[in-house]
Every structure is written in structure tokens, then in C-alpha cells.
């Protein structure tokens, strides 16, 4: 799966689709592949304030758990409730149906500290 050009990426394998002071967050295709079959996603509550690179939840696969970090700071305005019944969406469509949460950014400038698709691909290839 090609890494979408219009997203920004963190070193922890999360992506952010930034639109003004809003952003959608998810995990990358590389991340979902290394985790394997994802069975459960634990997300923060709507209304919670989260801080860039802080741990905000976990992604569980059959035999592993890994922390979910937010690439950007802000307030959680929506979480993807559909993942409860269909966590496999993260494996199927990590940049689409597998999105995890929407943020109202508290500091849109942080976007600059994230990686471009090209930079992220280089990181993931290592």
C-alpha cells in the first residue's frame, strides 16, 4: 500500500490528516502489518485533552499489545466507534475506515515536527 502523500507521520507509526485546526489520526499500513491481525483498539474518551507524543490508548493484536501515541496535541472530539465491532478495519483500510480519532488541535504548529510521506517511508524501510 502506497503511503498517502497528503498525510503527516510520526516516528511511532501514526498518521494525521490535518485540516485547519482539526485532524484525523490513525496508524500506518506499516504499523498494522507488523502488528498482524488487530483484535481490539482502546481509544481515549471524547473530551479528553491529549498531548503530542503522549500515550493515548492501545492496539491489541492476537499475541501483542502496543501503545498508541498521538502525533498531535488537542481535544478528542470523536472516536471511531465502529472499530469496536470491526477492529479488522484497521488492517483492511488503515488510512480510511480504520481511522481512530478526530482532534481539535490546540497547537496546529506541531504539524511541522511530523514527517512527510517520503521521510516516513525512509524510516519504515530501516
Amino acid at each position: 500500500m502506497a503511503t498517502p502523500q497528503d498525510l503527516r507521520y510520526s516516528k511511532e507509526h501514526e498518521w494525521a490528516r490535518v485540516n485547519g485546526d482539526g485532524a484525523v489520526i490513525g496508524i500506518t499500513d506499516y504499523a498494522q502489518r507488523s502488528l498482524g491481525d488487530i483484535v481490539y483498539v482502546e481509544l481515549p474518551k471524547v473530551g479528553e485533552q491529549i498531548k503530542q507524543f503522549g500515550s493515548i490508548g492501545v492496539v491489541e493484536s492476537v499475541k501483542a499489545v502496543s501503545d498508541l501515541f498521538t502525533p498531535l496535541s488537542g481535544e478528542v472530539v470523536e472516536v471511531n466507534g465502529a472499530l469496536d465491532g470491526d477492529p479488522a478495519a484497521v488492517n483492511r483500510d488503515p488510512y480510511g475506515d480504520g481511522w481512530m480519532l478526530k482532534l481539535k488541535l490546540s497547537n496546529p504548529d506541531e504539524t511541522k515536527s511530523l514527517l512527510s510521506a517520503e521521510e516516513y517511508d525512509k524510516l519504515a524501510a530501516e
Partner: peptide, 12 residues
Amino acid sequence: LQAREQHIRRER
């Protein structure tokens, strides 16, 4: 639901 358990989550 083994991700709850010590062999995967260890101290958590």
C-alpha cells in the same frame, strides 16, 4: 482475549 494477560501485557 490473551492481550489482557501477563505473558503479553506484562506489568500492565
